[in-house]
Design a protein around this nucleic acid. Structure first.
Lengths: 144, 144
DNA sequence: TTCTTATATAGGAATCATTCTTATTTGTCA
DNA sequence: TGACAAATAAGAATGATTCCTATATAAGAA
């Protein structure tokens, strides 16, 4: 079963319609592994769907989050970024350029959630975020 | 040395002026342990500074981040939230109401950053984020 | 296949968060 | 106390996101 077929299947299961726009947005999101904004997805899709609206892109991405095939990435910024990587993974953020790197770590995956939190929260997800400055950006700083 | 005195000291060290607005914003941020937005700080301060502008609050909070006495909290939302808790700590987020709970864990603090990341990033900070639904919100859901 | 209807979309307006511009004010230091 | 760089207020501008509404369409029924 290929990507599009499995997308159709999920939509059916979740009771939402399989529209060409949704299919294109899903496809664009899966293609980009760099946590794109709605605007970036919008621009990418516009080539094939000249009349698509930015609102549709936002609405659709949020629908994907709701049905569990995408995540909103946590950031310090004021622009939502989306992630189609649904495997358990962690993030390293560059504080200068905003690049977000996915990485995997069994140690991090296996962390116990403290009892104190389990008492107060129904835990859905747990993730380590590392902040720093990427190589490219520290190089730039040196060049000044 | 009390809170205000130590604030004056930090400002002097960092070469920024000690203004009544900055002092009030610092004070309001320290008082609120619930990761307030600029708007919330603005409203809190307005009572005593009727002419303060929202821009000043934003600018000042970002200045505090720059000089290392506040953090911008990572969220999925599109509103910046600020944190005056500079101790190493971790966050649990309620996905329904947006509440953010600070918690402490030596195990989490001591996590090793994978070599793969250390090769590519100058690591500044590392934090565990837990997503879930808080007690109050799961109770609400049951009540429906 | 065609019809029906609930759902989804486009387009533009509206809203919310944040930043910029500029004239004025004010800490700070000589 | 005066000078000046830095900071502030006010409102305009920008950017991101959501809302409104008329139209279009996917999907199940006939």
């Amino acid at each position: 079963m290929n990507r599009i077929e499995s997308f159709r299947k999920i939509c059916k299961e979740q009771g939402i319609k399989v529209t060409p726009q949704r299919t294109a947005i899903f496809d664009a999101l899966e293609d980009s592994r760099d946590h794109p904004t709605a605007e970036i997805i919008f621009q990418a899709i516009r080539k094939r769907f000249p009349t698509i609206s930015l609102d549709t892109v936002y609405r659709t991405l949020m629908t994907f989050v709701k049905i569990g095939i995408a995540h909103v990435v946590e950031t310090q910024g004021n622009t939502k970024r989306f992630d189609a990587n649904m495997e358990i993974h962690h993030h390293a953020h560059c504080l200068k350029c905003g690049k977000i790197l996915d990485f995997y770590s069994a140690d991090y995956d296996n962390l116990e959630v403290p009892q104190e939190i389990r008492n107060q929260f129904t835990v859905m997800d747990k993730k380590v975020v590392i902040h720093g400055v990427c190589k490219k950006c520290s190089q730039k700083q040196k060049d000044l």
